[in-house]
Design a protein around this nucleic acid. Structure first.
Lengths: 208, 208
DNA sequence: GCTTGTTTTAAACACTTGTTTAAAATAGTT
DNA sequence: AACTATTTTAAACAAGTGTTTAAAACAAGC
């Protein structure tokens, strides 16, 4: 946390930390205030309610989440190479922010349905990079497998996000230490990369 | 819910439903009691505390979760065929219990660390089916790719579980209806199956 | 100095939380 | 029937919840 941040920023930073770790229902306003080193009333003074503060945090988390996808797509490289780099960046990003996918999926599954319908905006930014058109073109040329683009995204997300989300589960089931799991993750990443690239860009000309 | 269940069973059933949907922090004792149609005090009368009731539910959920893996492994079939059937069963199971993976992963990530260290027991049951030895043998014979078995499990879990966990996220991002997503899931399943089988059991003899 | 407006504080609000209690209802046994 | 043990109830408990309030502290301008 920065040193001379304003009270508002301190609360926001603390809220992000606590919300991401424990979810909306898993923490209290007082906990956030304490984490920020400020009075409870200030949470409502600056953000009106716990709910509105959460909404704010959630949106920015969602933005981080989706923007982490965009950077690679604009570069000048082959689709296959882009895919390789993208997976690498994704693993890198998720190692730094392991709580993010769980957080978003959870809060998305809450009954109150967090801020539904607004996140397509960011997704359209991804579309604007032209990556989807690039895929369609590659599919017409036969260098990429005929596959629904939603499935492509799902394959990538599944294989990149799940391993970081399920860290504690996996550690427990397989009796691994933190270091062992980090190592495991590294070799897993290369499997994921090879598997996805092999499947999406088959080398022998039987695209099925 | 069954008609003439005992009060204890009614509470347990209600607790399972509510806990799975909302998590430990996301619901109250009174909510569970109301869902069971019983008095709040009975929750503590039969289960002593919300925490102990949760522990009970969590363990049985974990059991469902892991036992869903075991059934296929004993059958008499080729490894590849077993894998295909396993993935099919897994998708089938997860469609019926979509909250299960999120629930377990979440509660596993809670600070209190739910009942850590006891779940290896079930996992050992999987080992007893001999599936792991079978894999090692296949790897020696060259019919299966040289790959850490933990990675194999992770690949399967990632690709089967994530798509059901992220349903609401995906629906929102891609603006899909429930029916559209179910359809999408169906075609995704076949991609997952082909991709995993192709990667784990490569046909051309270049196992790398 | 005093007077503005903003920021921070401690205290209180009404309500929900998990849990306990003591009395009431019920079932079981002789 | 009467006595027992079990089950269920409504009420209460202290502690914690999100939020509001009214007073205090602070800063800036005159």
């Amino acid at each position: 946390m920065k040193k001379d941040a304003t009270t508002e920023e301190k609360i926001k930073a603390a809220a992000k930390e606590v919300f991401l770790a424990k979810g909306f229902a898993g923490c209290s306003s007082r906990e956030i205030a304490k984490a920020a080193g400020e009075n409870v009333a200030l949470v409502n003074y600056y953000f009106r309610s716990k709910g509105q503060l959460f909404e704010l945090i959630f949106k920015s988390a969602m933005e981080d989440f989706l923007l982490s996808m965009i950077h690679v797509f604009n570069s000048e490289q082959s689709l296959e190479q882009k895919m390789r780099i993208f997976i690498e960046r994704e693993f890198e990003f998720l190692t730094k922010h392991p709580e993010l996918p769980s957080f978003i999926i959870n809060e998305m599954n809450r009954e109150e349905g967090c801020a539904v319908g607004e996140h397509t905006i960011h997704f359209e930014k991804i579309a604007e990079t032209g990556i989807f058109n690039e895929c369609i073109k590659a599919q017409q040329e036969g260098t990429m497998r005929e596959i629904n683009l939603i499935s492509v995204i799902m394959l990538i997300m599944s294989n990149c996000q799940y391993p970081t989300m399920a860290k504690n589960l996996m550690k427990n089931i397989h009796q691994l230490t933190d270091e062992e799991y980090t190592l495991q993750l590294k070799t897993h990443q290369s499997h994921v990369t090879e598997m996805l690239v092999n499947y999406l860009f088959p080398k022998n000309n039987s695209t099925k």
